Computed example of a mutant assay.
Amino acid sequence: MSTMNLALAYSPAFLGLRFLLEVCALVCFGLWGWRRVPGRLRYLAVIAIPVAVAFAWGDFATAGDAARSGETTFDTPGPLRLLLELAVFGGAWAALRHSGMRRAAHWFLAVLVLYHLAAYDRVLWLLQH
């Protein structure tokens, strides 16, 4: 068993939490589109914005990342992938705030910070690859 498989960030519980955070982030973008885009365009925005974020999220990855399949469409250096992840999660936080859901935004941010602190091993792995 490799050291990476023993790392906290790659445990099934943390991978499950990460998946939930990713889904929550996409929901936040959809919610923002629904609340902030006027008229009938909101129906398009509630679908298009999360789909666009999900494509960027899924296509730009670091090869060999055990928190994902390890495969990628566009091999992205680890530090750049970390910035992308922080941008997506930070954007979701901003979307919640901009949608008028400040309390939810605070809780989401708190969970994100705690998750990334606890998953320091993956953060370090991304910074080194």
Rank of each mutant, 00 (worst) to 15 (best):
M1D: 06
M1S: 12
N5Q: 11
L6F: 11
A7R: 11
L8S: 15
Y10I: 03
A13Y: 02
A13F: 07
A13P: 03
L15M: 12
L15H: 00
G16W: 02
L17A: 09
F19N: 01
F19A: 12
L20M: 14
L20F: 13
L21F: 09
E22G: 07
A25N: 11
V27G: 03
F29R: 06
G30A: 08
W32S: 01
W34T: 11
W34A: 14
P38R: 15
P38V: 11
G39N: 11
G39A: 15
L41H: 09
R42K: 11
Y43L: 04
A45K: 05
P50D: 07
A52G: 08
F55T: 15
A56T: 07
G58R: 13
F60R: 01
A61R: 14
G64E: 01
G64A: 05
D65I: 08
A66T: 14
R68F: 06
G70Y: 03
G70K: 04
E71D: 12
E71R: 08
T72R: 12
T72S: 11
T73A: 11
T73H: 06
F74C: 07
T76H: 06
P77Y: 12
P79L: 15
P79D: 00
L80A: 08
R81P: 03
R81M: 09
L82A: 03
L83N: 01
L84R: 05
E85G: 05
L86W: 11
V88P: 00
F89M: 09
G90C: 13
G91H: 05
A92F: 02
A92R: 01
W93G: 02
L96Q: 01
L96V: 04
G100S: 05
R102V: 14
R102M: 11
R103W: 13
W107S: 10
W107N: 13
L109F: 12
L114S: 08
Y115I: 13
H116P: 01
L124R: 13
W125E: 01
W125Y: 13
L126P: 04
L127H: 01
H129F: 04
